[in-house]
Design a protein around this nucleic acid. Structure first.
Length: 585
DNA sequence: ATTGATCCTG
DNA sequence: CAGGATCAAT
């Protein structure tokens, strides 16, 4: 924390953004290496990527294992240009895993001739997915390693191939759900693609702008020894622009996310509603067959195997491909990242997910915490609660555990663990919830304002998307701060009276007084912030108010503190502008 | 009905 | 620090 150098992270591009980057969690994409890579490829790895991650993953695995299919299995000539990807999109990993469970229709390729028809439609399907990926943003590989022209032409070809493929998808495919679902999925994919392309355009524009500023700053940096003080004003202007651009970028991102997920919530949730059949064991082997997994796939919210079963706040872990789920409880419907994000947008991070449509209604019913209560009262459904109330009839602890998963409370830590897998989301996670850095900042702000208005909060936490939850949490924080503050004051005042202090003038607070140390320890633990003098004055006034009230026995009145609160709330001062910067911590 | 402050608890 | 209860103000 260094408020005098609020942007120091921004001025060390040379160390590649690998420095201790506290602010990096908030705005990770502004680190140079982050900028170079994840922002460009985010569209492959974020929103859609949770629909497609498996395909990409499979492709990688295959590239390593040299697993190949005969080109002849690709029946469509329109897929010729992407035949290699098509082939490589067959998951060697999945195949290996699935080979352990023979009889699944998505069998291994040990004898390709036997499943030629299946191979064909799976090939087509994979080709389609691959093409969608490529038409989204171009192949990340070609972007990163190849020349951009080729990438662009690849993209054009991929789009055409995609259109061709759309026609191909009209062919009878598989019996999952209804036959109309595949074409409607295509529609959704297409809509999503259009959305993403527009997002990309916006992003590219912002990236360009940002890069301009960035380069400009670099140039200024390099020349700074040779230039006069005009350099400082130049730099300041650049910084302002940087701040502006950061906010613009965040805003554009979040708006885009909002738009996409609005779409998703109208279309995607219909899909998940048909997944309801997954919740009964009788259906799990049918409706939740691996075929479904070749489409949207994603996260399984699960508890880490090593965590105690009694943990109240299980963390979200990397998804298992369903067939690799250690206990084969595939019917524990996975929560999609998109659903999580959507839920976050609606309710904030501290709600459980019992209300999500993918949840079995029965569990919703039996979970009183999840229905009809304000957000603040919905959380903390513990595994033990569920174990006792929902599944008294013989399911083992592990089963109960897995069935309870969607009820885990989402913490910022959980979100960040999602974000670790996804640079785009990591940019936005802190946007949707309060982080430890925000807490730290709030505590420092308390030195200036004990009773911040919600407008002040909004002003000084510009990197957070405010909703009811966030606002309440921030207000609660300050309420807790005040509580500690007033408790200290009362304690010290009473102690002074016990110690025989008579004159209120003897109640003073300096930087080396015990009272100050206690307060500083609480609000400025790292002691890296210079506590403003005004805070000492206000503290002293507070202490004297308590002293006076107690000495005159006003504390016999149950609401004697209110008078003091009324005095203290008028002593707020303005929070310095430095706190407005999201990079000040 | 909602919001916010405080108090109390864990 | 968060959750919940209570009270007051809107």
């Amino acid at each position: 924390m260094n408020l005098s150098l609020p942007d120091q992270n921004m001025h060390n591009p040379s160390d590649g953004g690998l420095e201790d980057n506290k602010a990096g969690l908030m705005i990770p994409c502004f680190r140079r290496n982050m900028y170079d890579e994840p922002l460009i490829s985010y569209s492959n790895r974020s929103i859609i990527s949770h629909l497609l991650r498996k395909t990409i993953h499979n492709k990688k695995a295959l590239d390593e294992s040299h697993f190949y299919l005969p080109t002849s299995t690709v029946s469509s000539s329109t897929m010729a240009d992407s035949s290699q990807e098509d082939q490589s999109s067959v998951s060697s990993k999945d195949s290996v895993a699935e080979s352990a469970s023979p009889g699944r229709h998505l069998s291994t390729r040990v004898s390709p001739e036997e499943d030629r028809p299946l191979s064909d439609h799976l090939q087509a399907k994979r080709a389609r997915v691959e093409n969608i990926i490529r038409s989204m943003a171009g192949s990340p590989n070609s972007r990163l390693h190849g020349d951009s022209e080729r990438a662009e032409s690849d993209t054009r070809e991929a789009r055409e191939a995609y259109r061709e493929n759309k026609r191909k998808q009209m062919l009878p495919q598989h019996q999952e759900g209804s036959s109309s679902s595949s074409s409607s999925k295509d529609e959704e994919c297409h809509k999503l693609k259009v959305q993403l392309q527009s997002m990309q355009r916006i992003l590219r524009q912002l990236q360009d702008k940002f890069l301009q500023v960035y380069n400009q700053d670099d140039a200024v940096h390099e020349d700074r020894d040779d230039t006069d003080r005009s350099y400082l004003t130049h730099q300041r202007g650049g910084k302002n622009l940087q701040e502006t651009l950061k906010h613009e970028l965040s805003k554009a991102m979040s708006e885009s996310v909002d738009r996409v997920f609005k779409k998703l919530s109208s279309t995607g949730l219909n899909q998940s509603s048909h997944q309801h059949v997954c919740h009964t064991p009788e259906h799990r082997s049918e409706a939740c067959s691996p075929k479904d997994q070749t489409e949207a796939l994603s996260l399984v919210v699960r508890k880490p195997p090593l965590s105690q079963l009694s943990s109240v706040t299980p963390t979200v872990k990397r998804p298992y491909p369903l067939h690799q789920s250690p206990f084969q409880f595939n019917y524990s419907t996975p929560l999609h990242d998109s659903q999580m994000l959507e839920h976050l947008l609606k309710y904030g991070p501290h709600t459980n997910f019992g209300g999500l449509p993918c949840m079995p209604p029965s569990m919703d019913r039996t979970s009183p915490n999840s229905v009809g209560l304000p957000w603040s009262m919905r959380s903390k459904v513990t595994s033990s609660h569920l174990a006792h109330h929902h599944h008294p009839s013989g399911l083992g602890p592990v089963t109960v555990d897995s069935l309870c998963l969607p009820h885990v409370k989402m913490e910022c830590g959980d979100l960040q663990s999602i974000a670790e897998r996804n640079s785009y989301m990591s940019l936005n996670i802190s946007f949707y919830c309060l982080t430890p850095n925000h807490l730290k900042k709030a505590k420092l702000m308390f030195f200036y304002t004990r009773y911040p208005s919600s407008n002040v909060l909004k002003t000084f936490f510009p990197d957070v998307k405010f909703n009811r939850c966030i606002t309440s949490q921030l207000i609660k924080w300050f309420s807790n701060f005040r509580e500690f503050y007033y408790i200290q004051m009362e304690k010290f005042a009473r102690q002074a009276i016990v110690d025989g202090v008579r004159d209120v003038k003897d109640m003073s607070i300096s930087r080396d007084s015990e009272m100050f140390r206690a307060l500083n320890m609480h609000y400025n633990k790292a002691n890296d912030f210079q506590v403003p003098e005004r805070f000492l004055e206000v503290s002293e006034i507070t202490l004297q108010e308590f002293f006076n009230a107690i000495s005159t026995a006003k504390d016999s009145d149950p609401s004697w503190k209110k008078a003091i609160y009324k005095v203290i709330c008028k002593l707020d001062s303005d929070v310095p502008d430095e706190f407005k910067s999201s990079t000040c911590l």
